[in-house]
Amino acid sequence: MSPRQQTAGSMVVRSWLAARLTPGGALGLPLTVSFLMIAAAGWGLGELADSVRENDDLAAGDAGATAWMVAHRTGWLTAALRVVTDLGGVWMALALVAVAALGIPLSGSRWRTAALMALVTGGTSALVNGVKLLIARPRPTLPEMISTASGFSFPSGHSAQAVAAYASLAYLIGRRWPVPAVRVSAWAGAGLVVLLVGFSRLYLGVHWLTDVLGGYLLAAAWTTAVWAAVRLATSSGGAASRRQDQGTAEP
C-alpha cells in the first residue's frame, strides 16, 4: 500500500470515529453509547449466568445477602415493600404502556407508542422467561420467602420489567420535554423506582441478589436496543424524506 493510500485510509478511519463521537444526530455519540451499553449489559449478564451455574464469585455471596436481609426485616418496611414490589409487576407495566401512549406519544402517534412500549415490556418478559428456563435456578428456601412467587429464580422478572417500563417512560418524557431539568428528574425517578423494586424482591426473599442484577442487565440491553433502533429508524426516515423533498424541489 502506497503512502498516499495509507494516508487516505487513516483519514477515513479518523472521520468515521469522529462521526461516532459527535454529540448530535442518531448516528453519532448516542448510537455509540447505546452499542457500548448493550455490549456491557450483555457481557455482564453472561458473566452472572456463569456465576449462577457454577455457584461461584458473586453468586457465592447470595445466601449471605439474603440472610442479612432476613435478620434486618421490620414490620413497617415489610408492609411498604409488599406494595413497592408491585411496581415491577405485569399489570403495572401494562398501565405504563397506556400512560405512555395517551400522555406522551412519539410524534403524536398513540398506537405506535403503545406498540413500541409493548415491544419493550413484552420482549423483556419473553427474554426473562427464556433465560429462566435455560438456567433453571431454584428460588430461595420457603422460610425466607414472605411473598408468593413461582417458577425459576434467575433473572428477576420484576426487576427486569421495572427497568424496561420506567426507563422507557423516562426516555419518552425526555423526548417530549427536552429540558435538562425534566430529563434529569425523569431518569432519577425511574432509577429510584428500579432500585426499590429490586430491593423489594431481595428483601421479600423471592429472589437472590444475582437474580436482581441479572434482571437489570437483561432489560437494560433489550430496552436500549429497542429505543436505539427507533432512533435510527426515525433519523433514517427523516433523512429520506428530506432528500425526496429536495429532489422534488429541483427544476
Rank of each mutant, 00 (worst) to 15 (best):
S2R: 11
T7S: 12
G9T: 13
R14I: 05
A19C: 06
T32R: 05
A41S: 11
G46T: 03
E47G: 07
D56L: 10
A59C: 10
A63R: 13
A63L: 10
G64M: 14
V70C: 04
A71E: 13
L77H: 07
T78D: 05
G88Q: 04
G89Q: 05
G89T: 02
V90A: 11
V99F: 08
L106I: 11
M117E: 01
A118M: 11
T121I: 12
G122H: 09
G123K: 06
S125I: 10
S125R: 11
G130D: 01
A136M: 03
R137E: 07
R139M: 03
P140K: 08
E144N: 08
I146A: 08
S150F: 09
S153I: 00
F154V: 03
H158M: 07
H158I: 03
Q161T: 13
Y166P: 02
A167L: 14
A170N: 09
G174N: 06
R175M: 12
R176W: 09
P178N: 01
V179N: 10
V179I: 15
V194C: 05
G198Q: 06
F199D: 08
F199C: 06
R201I: 02
L202W: 01
T210D: 03
L213N: 02
L213I: 05
G214H: 07
Y216N: 08
Y216S: 12
W222T: 04
T224E: 14
V226H: 08
W227D: 00
S235G: 14
S235T: 13
S241K: 11
Q244M: 15
D245N: 14
E250A: 10
